[in-house]
Write a protein that binds this DNA or RNA. Structure first.
Lengths: 161, 161
DNA sequence: AGCACTTCGCTAACATGTTAGCCATATAGC
DNA sequence: GCTATATGGCTAACATGTTAGCGAAGTGCT
């Protein structure tokens, strides 16, 4: 690799940094037969007792069509239950089963433990910095960001030249 | 939503922050009929003239099995070519076609332009902070991070209780 | 040469991401 | 009441992520 990328891609750096952390948690999660997303959902329900699908989408950063599949697989595994709400027949409530509660009770502490290990390895100051700067990106109140105007679409793919 | 998540999940914050940025670029990329990953790959090849698949994997944060599919689709679209190396019949060289070069020449400046808009909206200081802190996470020389020991695996999924 | 060992890209199987759009249910306005 | 609109979860179709493992090609050692 002779030279570095001249243009530094922020989204890509996020991806890389995220992986740098996640790779230390993934073994724990898969050890229990869960996927990363399934664990995120269990954690969220653990916090809120019960959640509606769209809330899970927002909390866990999962798009609705993905969530549908994840939830039905988790239902099959006996980890969650889905019940329609009486007041509003469109909405659904997702809850944990006792089995899932036991699972969370075992898995959760291990994640916390590994987190402490990572915090020491990376340095608590860096972790703190991360929280601060990520919050600035996420929670900041910004006006609407203008979208540059796009040229008329050409059919690159079909075009043979 | 009555209360906030007590435990803050760093990988998830990364995901959220990344999306906060990416959502402003995605429209541009899809406007040209590309996916985010295809664009990452074109950018990388644009920088290095030619790359081998495993180099692309590393640069673009794409796993090898994913890349296989992405590249063959891009080959079908006439965006890249794959040629086996003479010296080492295992290895492959990936290059852009003229069509892809034109595409990059059109798309690249738009990305840069949108990037400037975002930099202003977020504040150049914040962007700079991001680069610094992400670099600390990614490029830092750390010793091997210990992995906590896992309990014997139980068959949660099959277990009925 | 012959052998064990590694490397590289690949396939397979499954889970998730992404976009578009559907259908039933609620809600607002008339 | 009745229509127009909005909302919530869903399906469908395709692209990618993730893990395991395969087969051919190179390497090092004897």
């Amino acid at each position: 690799m002779s030279r570095k990328l001249a243009y530094r891609n922020l989204p890509q750096l996020f991806l890389r940094a995220r992986e740098e952390l996640l790779c230390h948690f993934r073994p724990i999660i898969t050890h229990f037969g869960l996927t990363e997303q399934q664990w995120r959902i269990l954690r969220a329900i653990g916090e809120f007792e019960q959640l509606e699908p769209r809330e899970i989408c927002e909390i866990c950063q999962i798009l609705s069509p993905s969530l549908t599949g994840v939830l039905s697989r988790m239902e099959d595994m006996g980890l969650v239950t889905r019940t329609r709400m009486e007041e509003d027949q469109r909405r659904v409530l997702v809850r944990m089963t006792p089995k899932a509660e036991k699972l969370v009770a075992e898995l959760g502490p291990l994640i916390v433990e590994q987190y402490k290990v990572i915090e020491q390895a990376f340095g608590p100051e860096l972790i703190q910095e991360l929280y601060v700067v990520l919050d600035k990106v996420i929670a900041a109140e910004r006006g609407p960001i203008p979208q540059i105007k796009l040229p008329p679409r050409k059919n690159w793919i079909a075009d043979e030249s």
